[in-house]
Amino acid sequence: MTTAPADAAIHASLKGVTRIYPGAGGNKPVHALGPVDLDLRRGEFFGVVGPSGCGKSTLLEVLAGLQQPTAGTVNFEGKPVMGEVPDGIGVVFQEDASFPWLTVWDNAAFGLRRAGIDEAETRRRVDDVLAFMGLKDFARAYPAQLSGGMRQRVCIARTLVLQPRLILLDEPFGALDAQTRLLMGDEVLRLWRRTGATVLLITHALDEAAMLSDRIGAMSARPGRFMDIVETHWPRERDSTIVGEVAFGEITGRLWENLRGESLKSLGYAGMAAAE
């Protein structure tokens, strides 16, 4: 291998990445992201929090190779990411991306069938992932018959079944109530431990980020940049009960300190203050 041993711990990285959306139809160009530097360590759980519209989804899409950065470079497993989603990256999108014309089972099998995996292996892996995601009893159901949270699980199952080494989750539980979200958080922790994958989770919920992550990147208002990266030092075996710990309060407190001003900015208060 040509990669230096020191880099082996770095699973994916962004260097000086910015993303500017060109203005279409007479609109001004939108500087959505960066410059951003980020090293994702192999096997870590990295949370990203930031005010709405700060460029979180843009960050994820650039990292996944779904968007070209305007400047800077993206690396995954030592290779540059260029215009294509590299093998080994799985993405769960912010929007519901389940296929309404397929059953839950066929949704989960989609990627395996595309990859030409044989029927017996497909069956084994799909049954396994559905059991793991608590969807076993809904295997024959169609997404429209499920709740929003269940549909998002279907999308997670569809991603997991391909055994990605880097899993990117874009606010997968954004539409759920706070309690359900905490429980879904436990599930995400379970899948992270079991798969051994590196996970990047975008969320707008500080408590969710604090409870799940090894490290949390707090982003500024648009154009999004990392203002602070908080290490949580949680043990690998953890669950939602840690929300009762003192350290949990300290972490969310520190995140909020960082984000309060930025969230106000993104709401437009900074502009109002300047006008006074």
Binding site: V85, V91, W101, R114
Partner: peptide, 26 residues
Amino acid sequence: PRVLSKVARVHRMGAVATALRLKLPA
């Protein structure tokens, strides 16, 4: 849904496969 095009790219599907497998059924 626009997100289907992104899903297609994650699965590295070409234009024809995307049209037949995702867009047409949608």
